[in-house]
Each structure stands twice: as C-alpha cells, then as structure tokens.
Design a protein around this nucleic acid. Sequence first.
DNA 1: TATTAGTAAATGCACGTTCATTTACTAATG
DNA 2: CATTAGTAAATGAACGTGCATTTACTAATA
Lengths: 198, 198
Amino acid sequence: MAGRPRGVDDSVILRAAVEVIGRMGPAGLTLAAVADEVGLVPGTLVQRFGSKRGLLVALAARSVQDAGTLHERARERHESPLAALRTLAVESMSDVSTPRTYANHLAFLCMDLTDPELHEHALAVHQARGRAIEALLRAAVSAGELRDDTDTAALTGSVQTAIAGAGLTWALDRRGTLPERLREEIDTVLAPHIRRRT
Amino acid sequence: MAGRPRGVDDSVILRAAVEVIGRMGPAGLTLAAVADEVGLVPGTLVQRFGSKRGLLVALAARSVQDAGTLHERARERHESPLAALRTLAVESMSDVSTPRTYANHLAFLCMDLTDPELHEHALAVHQARGRAIEALLRAAVSAGELRDDTDTAALTGSVQTAIAGAGLTWALDRRGTLPERLREEIDTVLAPHIRRRT
DNA sequence: TATTAGTAAATGCACGTTCATTTACTAATG
DNA sequence: CATTAGTAAATGAACGTGCATTTACTAATA
C-alpha cells in the first residue's frame, strides 16, 4: 500500500544542495537552506536521508555516478580525442559559474577529504576522471594527435594537476573565464606531445 | 602607563590558529579551540581581536607578511635559481604535514575567497608568490639554467598552477609526499625550457 | 592607584534532531 | 461505487547543543 507520494525527488534535493554550496559555501549548507530551496522543512530531510551527514553521503555518491556518465558522454562524442578532452574538463565544472562558486565547491570537496567515507567517494570521482582522461589520451595517440612515444599515464597526472591548478588559481586571481583557463593550461601541458602536421 | 603585560603574544595565538585549522579544518576553528591551545579563554580572544573575524583578518595579514619574507629568503640563498624555486614551493607549504592538513588549509583558503577583505589578502599572497617565482625564473634565464627565449611571465603562471594542482591532487590521492609531488610537477613544467648542457 | 589583561558566567542565536500530528494517497471491503 | 482502513510523506513546534559575544569581576603590573 503506497502512502503519500513524494513531492520532490531525491535528485532534486541533491541538486538544490549543490546549488546552495555554490552560493553559500560549506558553512552555509544547512538543512534549512536546502529545505527552503525545494519547499520542504528541515526535519523532512533528516527523515529522508537519516541525518545531515546522510545527505552529504548521498551527494558524494551521486558525484561518483555523474563522473562516470561524463566519461561515457565524452567518449561517445564524434570529436577528436583532444577536443573531447578539453570538453570533458570544461563540462566537469558545469556547476561552476563564478570564481566564488568554484571556491565554495572546492571548500566542500576539502571538507569531504577529512571524512573517511566521503574521501572514498571523492577519490573515486578523481580516479574516474583520471581513467577518462587517460582513455582519451590513448585515443589521441592512436588518432595521431599525440606523438607515439607519449607516456599517457604520466601525462594523465599532468593534465589532472593542470585542471586542478587552473581552477584554484582562477578562484584566486579571477582573471578571464574558467573554460579559458582550463583550455590554456591543458594545451600548455599537451603542447610538447602534440604531433606536428605532416 | 602600561598595565598588566600580555601572557601570550598575538603571533603565538595566530600560530595556534593555523595549527587548529590544520588539525580540525575551518569548521573546527573555534575561539574555544584556539584559546585552549594557548591557555586562554574564548572571551579574551574576542577582546584582543575585536571578534572572531578580526582574528581571521589578522591571520590573513600575517600570511601576506610571511609570503614576503619567504620570497626574501629564497632570493638570499646561494643555490641555483631553479633549486631556490623548488625550495620556495616546498617551504611555502611548511604548515602542511599530511594530505588532510593540506585539505584543511585549502578549505580555509577557500573560505577566505568568499569574503572580500580576506580575498584581498589571499590574492596578495598569491601575487607575492608569483613575483617571487618570476624573479627566480628570470634569474634562471640569466644563469643559463633556462633557455633564453623563455616566456617567464607565462611560465610563472604554469608553475603556480602546477603547485596548486599538485597540492590538490595530493590531498585527493594521497600518494607519496607533498615535496615529492611539488618537485615532480614543477620539473615537468620546466622541462621544455631547461637549457641543455653545452 | 590607575590601567590593562584575563577570567567566569551569562546571553542569544543558529543549527541538527526528535516527535506527535496532519496530509495525501492506495487498497481493501460492503 | 462509496467508504473505510492502512501507510508513507510532510509538517511544525519543541529540545539540546555549540558557538560567538557580552558583562561584571579579579589579577597583575607600572
């Protein structure tokens, strides 16, 4: 026997939480703020997720899923592997609109890093992205976009630190747009391995 | 004229605050925690810094000073410019001992980024480091360690994102030590510009 | 003794959480 | 078909806690 149907889906609540984090930062992520965003009351969120921490765990779990689908989509595109790589980097930041938004999301990520269970999820996201990047780099080698002697594993690490560094420095100096900065840094890292046109 | 002398200096309190941030993260940075660390009582800190935010501002101001002196020291060393650059990067992280510690400090930095006044300080630190890096890069060109045609301004940006990225990815995957990771990333960025031995 | 540093207790606020109650729906039953 | 029982979702008003801040007081110097 079904009871009263849910007014808002879990996914809507989690999206709202992401929104709140971007606007208010981790300290502003209160159950009241999230509940307000979706037209519920704080206690309801506790009942549905068990606790505030339960909501955070659900949020982290969703991030892992998202990272996976992002990977899928990037591979399905019919662009060149390197173009797909740049797109992947930019789209993985779809929640970020301003430097402050990025700073808030980053602060939240850091908060996760101090909690064992949440760190597991954050690491999973990071590794999923790493695998996606390396797959695209390999494809780029196969497609002749990168030199044959490219160490794709090492280059993957460089690309990831470039992406992370671009975001953080952008949050600090606030120059230009994030997509610009990401593309710049990625291209700089890739440059030595780009295959010259024959 | 002067009344009762202060039992603990401001600098000691600020150092304690840094310590607490590293251990507990921004959320754990309470006046009680800091006061406890130095053997005072929360109310005293409010009286001395005006408010909790006052303490944060003082902390940010001290970071700006520190960044400057770090620059000075790096230039005074009798090492090669590139060696000094690597040392500068490592020593600018002297408060960081574990990935978690770094994550906590980073989260605190991000917190600052959402406050206009604190962001000013954080930006000043970032720019001071940028100037130090560029000075060392220029010196490296003069000393023949880097190629003459090196675009030191552009390379400065790359080095800064490499440093930032190395820290963040290290906090995520927790592989190796931070100094190792920093040196690795910096060397990768510098590699294309290193002058071959004659 | 005048002045400043420090304390201890009190205040007020924001937050997560709990719980009795109400609402909205489904599934039996006559 | 109309009615009733059953159930899950949501509410709103508590409650307790942890925190920054205030206030009245004490301690230590010059």
